[in-house]
């Protein structure tokens, strides 16, 4: 028996909206500790990793580990029927479920929707991602980072991110010209302005902006984002989801000449 009830169903809607341009189908693994999901884009350049802890749910029960193979497109269609204020419950009582039940309830419990989504059997192509001690970590406003990526992608397809003790520099070079945006440490008490740099080792890495712009669809999940980098390593972009878990994106760097 598996049942997970999320009080703020809108979070689940936002998660699916954030990943639907990147991955087509995913395996959600349910266990006693919660839900986890890892999936890559078709080119295996980017990876999304979701972890939702059981104690972040209003109700959570998972008698034995199960894997739920979902088409993101079909999941989106079902979730469109959920109101932003609804609770969302996932439920199946089969051991090898062929479908997953969804219940959407409004606040007054006066409207209850029930859907059943057919499940897919997907071969799991998961990667082992070691816990990495990143040498450069940048915490900043997710809206600000999203804006920087959007603005710079009109000049070039790739952005070079270079960190130093007191600042991070986003540089682009394109046919029309070049540009850079330098962001300094800023302990402002205004979320949108605060920038927190923890630079043990400076890094200089280049990434494809179209992936970063896809990751930034998660901006509605958290007002802050962290960029985690080490030389010769994929970038890890993390959106923490208040007392529920985190949505992480990994992006392999470009081969710099």
């Amino acid at each position: 028996m598996f049942e997970a009830k999320l009080q703020q169903g809108v979070i689940f809607k936002k998660i699916v909206d954030a990943i639907k341009d990147l991955v087509k189908s995913v395996n959600i693994d349910a266990s006693t500790s919660g839900l986890s999901m890892q999936a890559m884009d078709s080119a295996h350049v980017a990876l999304v990793s979701l972890k939702l802890n059981e104690n972040g749910f209003k109700d959570y029960r998972c008698d034995r580990p199960i894997t739920l193979g979902l088409s993101i497109e079909n999941l989106s269609k079902i979730l469109k029927c959920a109101g932003n204020d609804d609770t969302i419950t996932l439920q199946t009582d089969e051991e090898e479920p062929s479908s997953l039940k969804f219940f959407f309830e409004n606040q007054q419990a006066s409207k209850i929707s029930e859907f059943s989504l057919n499940l897919m059997s997907l071969d799991s192509e998961s990667l082992g991602i070691p816990d990495t001690d990143y040498s450069s970590v940048i915490q900043m406003s997710s809206a600000e980072f999203s804006r920087i990526c959007k603005e710079l992608s009109s000049i070039s397809e790739t952005v070079e991110i270079e960190t130093s003790k007191e600042s991070v520099k986003f540089s682009v070079q394109g046919d029309i010209g070049a540009g850079s945006i330098t962001v300094k440490n800023n302990q402002s008490d205004k979320d949108v302005d605060r920038v927190d740099l923890q630079i043990d080792q400076p890094v200089k890495l280049t990434f494809a902006l179209r992936y970063l712009n896809m990751f930034n669809k998660a901006v509605s999940l958290s007002s802050t984002v962290s960029l985690n980098m080490s030389e010769e390593n994929p970038l890890m972009v993390e959106y923490k989801i208040d007392d529920l878990g985190s949505l992480r994106f990994y992006l392999a760097p470009k081969i710099s000449d």
Partner: peptide, 14 residues
């Protein structure tokens, strides 16, 4: 995309 690394270069399949 020829000038783009792939994640398999950094992480093992499990």
């Amino acid at each position: 995309v020829e000038d783009q690394f792939n994640l398999a270069k950094f992480y093992e399949e499990v």
